[in-house]
């Protein structure tokens, strides 16, 4: 069925396999009674269950928790956090500030834009290598096509302090030796041996750990949505508690004008 006939069949009703609220009696979450079958479920576990429909072991859920906690920095200078802080100093609401800051985290040089590219490349690279292809060749191809490799290098720093604690936790949980984590480090070796000199960053390691847990690129992308959230609330709160307008004020000399000179206004014809 196509066109208006298809649309007519959808009018006025939600047909869903995901769930529904039967207000006053129960809530169904992916086929399970939220307050009976899923009672006591950890929030991250529920979130990832909502995305994937799959259940994870306590060790895997702990690892997933860490992927968020290890990158929650309450530093209001960071671009996305700055949005939360500016919302606080401008006396906006906490929800607006945090929601906008999370939306901004879907960036092309960090955050969600990198997450989905990083896991997608790892999956494609593994398919290539499993099919007998050369890893170095795949890396070179990707760098040629996209000019950068998501998950390697870092826009504002050389090292990545998040790698060691994340790997340590993964080792303690028996999750550090999956095929994608090994591949991620093999790619790093390829990059360091070549002329690119880029190291694996947190985005690359997190994507590899998630791929080893069986998350698809879109599942991982949605899973990482709240990744920076814990660091954002403090940015909002502190700015909101201090005098209004006090976060990152800019006087006129802090704006450098590079444009055309002054000219009289007249509408062109």
């Amino acid at each position: 069925m196509k066109g208006p006939d298809f649309l007519a069949g959808q009018v006025g009703v939600l047909r869903t396999r995901m769930g529904a609220a039967f207000v006053g009696s129960k809530a169904v979450f992916r086929g399970h009674d939220l307050h009976a079958d899923l009672r006591g479920m950890d929030w991250v576990e529920l979130y990832v269950f909502g995305i994937t429909g799959r259940r994870y072991t306590p060790e895997q859920v702990r690892m997933l928790h860490a992927l968020w906690t290890h990158t929650s920095y309450p530093d209001a200078r960071i671009w996305n956090n700055r949005v939360a802080g500016l919302a606080g100093t401008a006396r906006s609401t906490g929800s607006l500030g945090l929601a906008a800051a999370l939306a901004v985290s879907e960036a092309s040089i960090y955050g969600r834009g990198i997450d989905i590219r990083a896991i997608d490349f790892l999956i494609r690279a593994k398919q290539h290598v499993d099919g007998g292809g050369s890893l170095a060749e795949k890396v070179e191809q990707e760098l040629k096509a996209r000019r950068s490799l998501a998950g390697y290098g870092r826009p504002i720093a050389a090292g990545d302090e998040r790698i060691e604690p994340t790997l340590a936790l993964a080792r303690s949980l028996g999750l550090a030796d999956g095929p994608y984590v090994r591949l991620a480090f093999a790619i790093e070796e390829t990059l360091l041996a070549g002329r690119w000199r880029q190291r694996l960053n947190y985005g690359g390691l997190a994507a590899a750990l998630a791929a080893d847990l069986g998350l698809s690129p879109r599942e991982y992308y949605l899973f990482m949505f709240p990744a920076f959230l814990a660091g954002m609330a403090p940015c909002y709160l502190e700015a909101e508690q201090r005098p209004e307008g006090g976060l990152f004020p800019l006087d006129c000399s802090h704006v450098r004008y590079d444009g055309v000179g002054k000219r009289p206004w007249q509408t062109k014809d």
């Binding site: 006129c252 000399s253 802090h254 704006v255 450098r256 004008y257 590079d258 444009g259 055309v260 002054k262």
Partner: peptide
């Protein structure tokens, strides 16, 4: 002019 300036071709104040 400060090192932390925002650059713009749009707006002069």
């Amino acid at each position: 002019m400060t090192a932390d300036a925002i650059r713009t071709r749009i707006w002069l104040e």
